[in-house]
């Protein structure tokens, strides 16, 4: 299921401003890759380039290559809709669809993609809610509005919703930054579970979180990938001075 992603000389600019300035990176399958760096370093912009979310920002320009498996997702004939079935995304703020029930939030995409119907769809709902560790809390009120859930529950619903299209890669943009410590803990546990089956890329400004959940860590600074390596090594023995300055809290 899980697939690797490779970026080659990936650049993203908005108008005159270049936010990502040529990044080469190899994202391993069945592992968690954390992206850290001070605000404005381009980490979210980089993440959003991995499922072509910049297509919908008129001023954004993307160049370079992003390989999913062995195919460039910016190449000719690649359909962004189909790409996003394989590369899912969870956003910074929980954004369940407020006009839909919990169940409909999950079935929205599988129905469009024709992934399942009837009993199979019910099974899918249960499976992803269990994967997201939300099933026991909501199984009796699947028809209720998603707005009634707590912030942490909403975010787990968003993760379940993303899993329901059976992606290979899951991109997470600071998924716990709007949550309290208990909810954060649950999300982190969840990420640990999910990496058995998925390739996960998580952007975070919280270094402890990166150290806790990730296998690999990338440090971004001013639109550049400064250092990339196994999380243990990067935090205990950084090769770059700027990385050390950042992880020891001297800036950012």
């Amino acid at each position: 299921m899980a697939e690797q992603m490779i970026t080659r000389d990936l650049k993203v600019s908005f108008g005159d401003h270049q936010a990502v300035k040529g990044v080469d990176m190899e994202i391993r399958p069945r592992a968690v890759t954390a992206i850290i760096g001070p605000s404005g370093c381009g980490k979210t912009t980089f993440l959003r380039a991995l499922n072509r979310m910049h297509d919908h920002t008129p001023s954004a320009r993307v160049s370079g290559e992003v390989l999913l498996g062995d195919r460039d997702i910016y190449g000719d004939g690649v359909d962004p809709v189909e790409l996003r079935i394989r590369v899912g995304m969870v956003f910074q703020r929980p954004n369940p669809f407020p006009t839909m029930s919990i169940r409909d939030n999950i079935t929205f995409a599988p129905k469009r993609h024709g992934l399942a119907k009837g009993k199979a769809l019910d099974d899918l709902v249960e499976r992803v809610l269990r994967q997201a560790a939300l099933w026991d809390e909501v199984k009796d009120r699947l028809g209720a509005s998603a707005v009634g859930l707590s912030g942490g529950q909403q975010q787990r619903l968003c993760i379940a919703r993303a899993l329901a299209v059976e992606p290979r890669v899951l991109l997470m943009d600071e998924p716990a930054s709007a949550l309290d410590p208990t909810a954060t803990q649950r999300i982190e546990d969840l990420i640990y579970e999910l990496k058995k089956d998925y390739t996960i890329v998580i952007v975070t400004h919280n270094m402890q979180q990166a150290a806790r959940v990730s296998d690999y860590t990338a440090f971004f600074y001013m639109g550049l990938l400064v250092e990339f390596g196994e999380t243990d090594g990067l935090f205990t023995n950084p090769r770059e001075e700027r990385t050390e300055a950042y992880i020891t809290g001297r800036f950012g």
């Binding site: 919908h56 996003r84 899912g88 956003f91 669809f97 006009t99 929205f108 995409a109 919703r161």
Partner: peptide, 27 residues
């Protein structure tokens, strides 16, 4: 309509029309 609503739908692989029809319009 908040931008993240539309983006959530697009990130799930909805076409622009589906995102508009099922998410933006109902919101």
């Amino acid at each position: 309509v908040p931008r993240d609503q539309k983006e959530a739908a697009l990130a799930l692989g909805a076409t622009r029309w589906e995102a508009t029809r099922h998410v933006v319009l109902t919101y």
